[in-house]
């Protein structure tokens, strides 16, 4: 069973310790072991975040007990949380990067 880890009890996301296929049931480690019966809503890679609660549009994405960004649109429990649905409070450029590779899309090569 793919594992994910909650670092702070106040968090609404967990970090994947293994790759998870869509609809895989997740084992939850760390401080939030109380949350049960969580499944991956889509493929989520190791190191990436899964929502462990519904997060409304404009609400804080909470990890380490602090807001690491704001939800850009409704995020459902079990969904992958990344550049496509979470925006930094301070960094404008990160929202323009390629979702999967993180590569800059605004640098011209010719």
């Amino acid at each position: 069973m793919p594992r994910c880890f909650i670092i702070d009890p106040a968090d609404n996301v967990a970090t994947m310790l293994d790759d998870a296929q869509a609809s895989a049931k997740l084992e939850i480690l760390g401080t939030g072991g109380g949350a049960v019966d969580l499944s991956a809503g889509e493929n989520i890679s190791l190191g990436h975040k899964v929502a462990i609660a519904d997060i409304a549009d404009g609400q804080g994405v909470i990890k380490y007990g602090v807001s690491i960004g704001l939800a850009a649109g409704m995020i459902r429990r079990g969904q992958w949380v990344h550049l496509h649905n979470c925006v930094s409070h301070v960094d404008q450029r990160s929202g323009t990067l390629d979702l999967h590779s993180g590569a800059a899309t605004d640098t011209r090569y010719e």
Binding site: T15, M16, S45, L46, G47, H48, K49, V61, K63, Y64, V66, S67, I68, G69, V81, H82, L83, C86, V87, S88, H89, V90, D91, R93, S94, L97, D98, H100, S101, G102, A103, A104
Partner: peptide
Amino acid sequence: VRQYSVSPGNFAGGLTTIEEKSMG
């Protein structure tokens, strides 16, 4: 310099924002 200290590999590895990277 129009760039916080976060790289393509960080994003590919699952870090979404500079705040998240900073806390870590």
